[in-house]
Write a protein that binds this DNA or RNA. Sequence first.
DNA 1: CTGAAAGCGCTTACAG
DNA 2: CTGAAAGCGCTTACAG
Lengths: 341, 341
Amino acid sequence: MGTIRDIAKKAGVSISTVSLVLNNKGYVKPETRQKIINAIQELNYKPSRSARKLATRTNGNIGFIIWESHFYEVEMFYSQVFLGMEYAARRSDSYILLTTVKEEFDPKTDLPRFLKYNDVDGVALAGRVPHELALYLENERIPFVLVDYNIPGKKYNSVQIDNYNGANSAVQHLIESGRRRIGFVGGTFFHSSIKERYRGFKECIEHYQIMDADQIARYTFVEDTETSPAIGEKGISSLLKNDQKPDAVFCCNDTTAMGVIKELHKRQIKIPDDIAVVGFDDIPNAAYSAPRLTTVKVPKLVLGKEAFNLLNEVIENPLEPPQTRIIATTLVKRESTGVEE
Amino acid sequence: MGTIRDIAKKAGVSISTVSLVLNNKGYVKPETRQKIINAIQELNYKPSRSARKLATRTNGNIGFIIWESHFYEVEMFYSQVFLGMEYAARRSDSYILLTTVKEEFDPKTDLPRFLKYNDVDGVALAGRVPHELALYLENERIPFVLVDYNIPGKKYNSVQIDNYNGANSAVQHLIESGRRRIGFVGGTFFHSSIKERYRGFKECIEHYQIMDADQIARYTFVEDTETSPAIGEKGISSLLKNDQKPDAVFCCNDTTAMGVIKELHKRQIKIPDDIAVVGFDDIPNAAYSAPRLTTVKVPKLVLGKEAFNLLNEVIENPLEPPQTRIIATTLVKRESTGVEE
DNA sequence: CTGAAAGCGCTTACAG
DNA sequence: CTGAAAGCGCTTACAG
């Protein structure tokens, strides 16, 4: 491989000059630059990352932390977010170190090793994470951003999905296609994103005045657990106990919607003829379920990319006030609402 | 944070001695060691990774490469393998750099940046990967291991699932529970693991002599594409055209089995009463499908851990002949074969 | 058992 | 426009 010194010798210049062209700094005479570039190519030279990082006193690494349980789940949501960050990182010279933390988290013993050994310039926290971890990062003044999550009562840098408007557009779509008794099925509001989706649902209905407060309440099913198909099954079963069956259901996410669909099948209730179903997320399965699921698509790669950009800004400029970046969603119309595009 | 020099000063020793205790090398008088340890704790000192890596001329990083399409798929298989590696890495001082490559791959333009810049000591290739990539690594003498894949005609270091015995035990289980016309549904044999599963299936049937070669052929459905539920649906539909319906199906993986189950439901064929179904992998869904799926469990975390261990051995000892490590599977009996444990 | 010194391969003022 | 020199924070023979 060789070192910068070999290049300098071969090109007949000093290592300072080589370093300048390596980093595209200062002004180097074109011929000199060319000689150096040639030498680099001939010797297939790659600068040592460690040496460079040592000299510049940076790490060039970014941490990506996710709940362990999310990694065991079926949904690929956070893998996609990671991939979005990784894509963005490819254009920089940083690497992303991915690791998990457990639900029960104590900074004293459970700190990811890149934090313990100070090997990252900043951290992205994906989805729900232990609050102790965020507090630790805040105290240690380690730059970080939350992705698709926020912590009540705290103002941190974060990248969020536009849950409110996403839900709003989904419900509007239902109303416009003639639905008048629209139910909601969801998991714990501990995730603010789900709370926001509910708000989007509720306010859209209020805006169009198709149901009164009492009806909304009767057509709302929320269980205080992590979302799952099981919630969907229970939820729709519960809504069906109303005297008048709902003619549409907005589910807090696709996973839940899958449960709803399963239960409706079981009861031989036709989708979308009897009841339309809408999800949120656009998981891979949504396009392949029977019927194919209308859903609010969350651009996960964009989420990751924005998280990367924001994090780097925070690293550059740690003293700026925290900001929130909102990522827009798009409604994907499929069979489950009967108006596939 | 401070540097090693601050510790030396505080403890009243030289930096050499601090380095010795940091690395647990040589012999340091207990009192001296204690003084140093105290200083480290008081100053909350963390050695600089870059400086250490520069001095030792190592990277301390390992690359993990996976097909991009695998990342978009529903299955979490390789995420789990990655997690197994990450767990193992936690006990060492290395980081794992995860990235993807596209299906059409040209080393000249598509090389992961950690290879381009020489930032890893070795690489794990997870699942099917471009052969050009493996050849590149071989030529460049970069240590690598294949995980759950191998390249025909090449002898590389690899960690493999015991597909043959896994399939064998699954089919044996079917035979022992009285099944006599056992079908096979699978995707492309390009993946040697699927070929091996088929071999395990076939040889088990031959061993028990429950079907002759002709029958085996008639009850085998293989489509030369990547596995998917769609293959399962098509496959079982095809097998059902036999005069005598099969009374069991061994699917090349759970994803395929899900398609089989779906199609059987549609045709109102009872599982396991009419037809028993077995999968392979034990994806999260397998335990929640209706009926719950009997399957061959692949210990993904172990796979990752062994890959990490083997890779490190290869890095230490690059000249050893390539080895293959086989990871055992276990049969998980559930409703779909009627003998849940 | 411990210290002084050289070296790892870069970057970055500072001269000129 | 380019070079000499110091420095980043470690490790590692080598003395003693």
